[in-house]
Design a protein around this nucleic acid. Structure first.
Lengths: 196, 196
DNA sequence: CCGCTGCCTTGATCCAAGTCAAGGCGTAGC
DNA sequence: GCTACGCCTTGACTTGGATCAAGGCAGCGG
């Protein structure tokens, strides 16, 4: 339910999407991660690290005070194990995005983003071959901040994907991927390389 | 001592620098992390994840079979805690680099890289004000792969930093930072935002 | 000593993505 | 209904970094 401040508690994300952002002194912003339910939000053992968490959609969360959780973690190996697992998952994701940010073209970035979202909004669907329709959790400007592109470039790439027949833009935020294979090809994701 | 293959063991890095890379089908490559002694190398609980580890310099490591470590981790909460801490540290770093890759200019990227290396090759020096001299663990081409730039752009930015008086290029790989403050300013790192 | 070979630098040109500018479309408020 | 505001698209043009093309320089082997 909150919306846009430094993370000083731990939270369980029950529904919705939260974006993690980093920002430069001059205002340039990078989204460094998206959290989907039922992710855990918060940085154990440390005051949150120059990073803001902001609701991207309507969200519901269950929060705990930091001090309490930090004590709980120490006394509960299974809890630490669960958090460790999530940290590793987020690390894998962050590194996948580094490849995308550093090496891919605008077209490949946008296709990668669509595929990523499609896999997350509904994990079941991800291996289907057929069309997948969903709501984007981000505006064009936010997608730009995620991919290191401007809003105009993002918009142009959407248009290009639409004209190429890979996607249908049902209505601004509502996208239908007509062929996951084709998206994957646009994104330069060969079968196995994406693992969400 | 090894040099360039998929990680199937766990290793303790005793000396030297190891680069973690991701690669696209068409050969584009991204360095997603550098490991300095005494880091731990390996992805717990999972076959290493589309990621290669390669020695960047002469290294010495101490390796263990994966199966053994995975059992050890489960039975030793303190070990898991240590690995968890390192995963979180690497996650913080990966996200800092996402900001760099997505938002910074070539000049800012190169300055950020120099500052990053300076902080790691000799952690003591990192808060000194005066000049710092060290050997780059990477070639220009590798720096390019780290920063999402070409070798030529990296080289030109080095030249620009040299002419601006921020660095001295003692000899290709051997760099002297004449003013950490100036480098930090070039890198758009305001005092606290880098935390290695 | 000479001639490779591997890196690195520099210059000239090109192009993908950024910037600037103008609208379009949907919806909320009056 | 009309207006205003937020978000998205499209077009014209500019530009930072990529690409293409020469060299330079050190270290090594013969």
């Amino acid at each position: 339910m909150s919306d846009g401040d430094e993370v000083t508690t731990y939270s369980n994300l029950l529904s919705g999407v939260v974006k993690l952002t980093k920002i430069l002194a001059d205002g340039r912003q990078q989204i460094v991660g998206l959290q989907f339910a039922p992710d855990f939000i918060g940085r154990p053992f440390k005051r949150e690290n120059q990073l803001d968490a902001e609701a991207a959609t309507t969200v519901s969360v269950c929060s705990f005070p930091k001090s309490m959780m930090d004590r709980l973690i120490v006394s509960s190996p299974p809890l630490e194990h669960r958090l460790h697992q999530q940290a590793l998952k987020e690390l894998d994701e962050a590194r996948s995005w580094m490849l995308t940010l550093g090496q891919k073209t605008a077209a490949e970035k946008v296709a990668s983003f669509l595929y990523y979202v499609a896999c997350h909004v509904d994990p079941e669907r991800s291996h289907l071959r057929g069309p997948v329709e969903f709501e984007l959790p981000l505006t064009r400007a936010e997608i730009g901040d995620f991919l290191g592109l401007t809003i105009e470039t993002v918009s142009r790439q959407f248009t290009k994907l639409r004209k190429s027949g890979a996607i249908e833009i049902v209505h601004n935020r509502s996208i239908k991927l007509l062929s996951l294979d084709q998206i994957r090809r646009h994104a330069k994701l060969d079968h196995e390389s994406w693992h969400f």
